Amino acid sequence: MTPRIERGRSVLRAYVSLTKTRIIEQLLVVTVPAMFLAGRRTGGGHLPSVWLLIATLVGGAVAAASAHALNCVVDADIDAKMKRTQARPLAQAQVPKAHALVFGLVLGALSALWLGLTTNWLAAALSVTAIAFYVLVYTLLLKRRTSQNIVWGGAAGCMPVVIGWAAVTGRVDWPAFVMFGVIFFWTPPHFWALAMRYRDDYAAAGVPMLPVVAPPAQVSIRIVVYSWLMAAWSLLLVPVTSWVYAAVAVLAGGWFVVMAHRLHATVRAGGEARPMRLFHLSNTYLCGLFITVAVDAALGLPVLGWPF
């Protein structure tokens, strides 16, 4: 392999790394179930077409890539200080910041145009809103200023379900907001568990994540509170799903709450906390819950409806 080809491949890998593809995968996992539920319950009783699914996923992936690339531009200085992020392209000066900025902006414009032309302009507008919120509100305004950064800034990560719903129906109905809320309440336990593990990293970078500025017991009790809110909120989706979803939501939510309480009990007793267990469990929980939504909608099982 010639040096020129090798350099080209290295540059390509750097640009791909800017998009944080592993996070994109998780965002797409929640989009498809939202689209299935939208089509089955409020979009005429049919699952969305394969083309609509592909178009929405492509647009959503490019929008997420845009937000992540722009986030890397803003956070290049603190990424260089954190062991967990030191290998990122801008932290290693593998890509000029100006080029990364243009790359992120172009991706954002392309995602909006693609979604507008292939789905509808509401979905496109929501994707632009998500990008702007993630970059301007979370990354620029909140992240370095408040320990509530991930609580409110995490709203950007909830947008894929709303975008997917809008792509199918052309509007946003209440089940989309319920799914938005599940991810919203899931985000603090997910990221605070990670931040407990990498507390020193965030402290070195001057990022006031809650585990940096609050005692461990205060962090763990807030994780418990948000875990309860998440589990309870997930039950609001029961009226448009079947007993299958209801059973999974109760069991999986209960499991998560129990594990959150165990973490808090260990921290309060002064034992060795293992927050990454809850972090990995949070990924399993979210994927499992939304996969159940997709299966429930795909099978067209009878809905439980309102209990009154």
Rank of each mutant, 00 (worst) to 15 (best):
G153L: 03
A166R: 08
P307W: 11
A232N: 06
W114A: 06
L12K: 00
G170V: 08
G300P: 05
L47H: 02
P89H: 05
R199S: 05
R171A: 14
F103L: 12
L57R: 05
A273E: 09
Y245A: 03
A93Q: 14
T292K: 08
A204D: 13
V213D: 09
V168Q: 02
A98E: 14
T187M: 06
V238T: 13
R41D: 00
W174C: 05
A34L: 03
Y285P: 00
S66H: 07
I183D: 07
C72Q: 14
M230W: 08
L90C: 06
I163N: 05
E272M: 12
L53Q: 04
V258L: 14
I163H: 03
R199I: 07
A294F: 01
A214E: 13
T85Q: 03
W255A: 13
P211W: 08
A124C: 08
G116H: 05
F177W: 15
G108P: 08
I150C: 02
T119L: 09
V248L: 07
R277S: 10
T292S: 07
I131H: 03
S220M: 11
L110S: 12
G157E: 04
V219M: 09
M1K: 11
M159G: 05
A132H: 00
F191V: 09
E6G: 04
W152M: 03
G157H: 08
L115W: 09
T19H: 02
Y134G: 09
M230K: 07
W121N: 01
K20M: 11
W174D: 02
L122F: 01
K97N: 00
R13G: 01
S282F: 08
V73L: 07
L301C: 01
L53I: 15
V238C: 07
V73I: 01
P211R: 10
P160Y: 04
I221M: 13
L113F: 13
W233L: 12
A297N: 02
Y285Q: 05
W174H: 05
V248M: 05
H68I: 04
V295F: 05
I23R: 08
A205N: 03
T85H: 06
L122I: 06
R274F: 10
F133E: 04
L47K: 00
L140R: 15
L117D: 02
Q92M: 14
N120L: 11
S234C: 04
R274Q: 15
L278D: 03
H264W: 12
V32C: 02
R199C: 12
L122C: 00
M209D: 09
V212D: 03
M209I: 10
M179H: 09
I223S: 03
V32T: 12
V161D: 07
V30I: 15
S282N: 12
